[in-house]
């Protein structure tokens, strides 16, 4: 199952998760988005750059593909399946494997040549500097006299 961009059904699913969390003793949402096909994304922004973090534990960094066009960031990847011998008995099988795609729109255009990505402890952190052309310019107001 692949998710791209915004999807109303996904939003409904999120609401459902949020309600489940409220009515259950221990929170399960937030961490559980992976189970719905795509990892959750957090975006942090400052005046000059943005930080995007996503939780993709157990993914080989070689299988992560990041691309930026304008203000759109696309993260593609795949997580390998755990393949034990055929004659094992499964007690739980909650972890999801397979391909995922997410595209998010950032608050500004990005200088794609300066994007940096770091994968540590299952968390992907992408730093995206704002494009020079997109930076706000201060305009001084002159008086007529």
């Amino acid at each position: 199952m692949l998710w791209t961009s915004w999807d109303p059904w996904r939003e409904i699913q999120r609401l459902q998760d949020e309600l489940n969390r409220v009515f259950s003793g221990i929170a399960t949402t937030g961490r559980a988005y992976y189970a719905q096909g795509a990892p959750g994304i957090n975006i942090w922004a400052s005046e000059n750059d943005a930080i995007v973090t996503t939780e993709i534990p157990g993914v080989d960094p070689k299988d992560i593909d990041i691309s930026v066009t304008g203000d759109a960031l696309t993260i593609k990847g795949s997580r390998a399946e755990e393949k034990p011998d055929k004659n094992v008995i499964w007690h739980r099988r909650e972890r999801v494997h397979g391909n995922f795609v997410r595209t998010v729109h950032l608050p500004f255009s990005v200088d794609s040549s300066k994007v940096e990505a770091n994968y540590n402890a299952g968390i992907l952190k992408i730093t995206l500097p704002r494009a020079e052309a997109d930076k706000p310019r201060k305009i001084s107001v002159r008086t007529a006299d």
């Binding site: 961490r31 559980a32 034990p84």
Partner: peptide
């Protein structure tokens, strides 16, 4: 948070995999 897990049992052992990003 409750981490997602895989648990399987072979003849010799029980293997637990847990997603604990971060």
């Amino acid at each position: 948070f409750v981490p997602a897990v895989d648990i399987y049992e072979t003849n010799d052992d029980i293997v637990i995999l847990a997603d604990l990003p971060g």
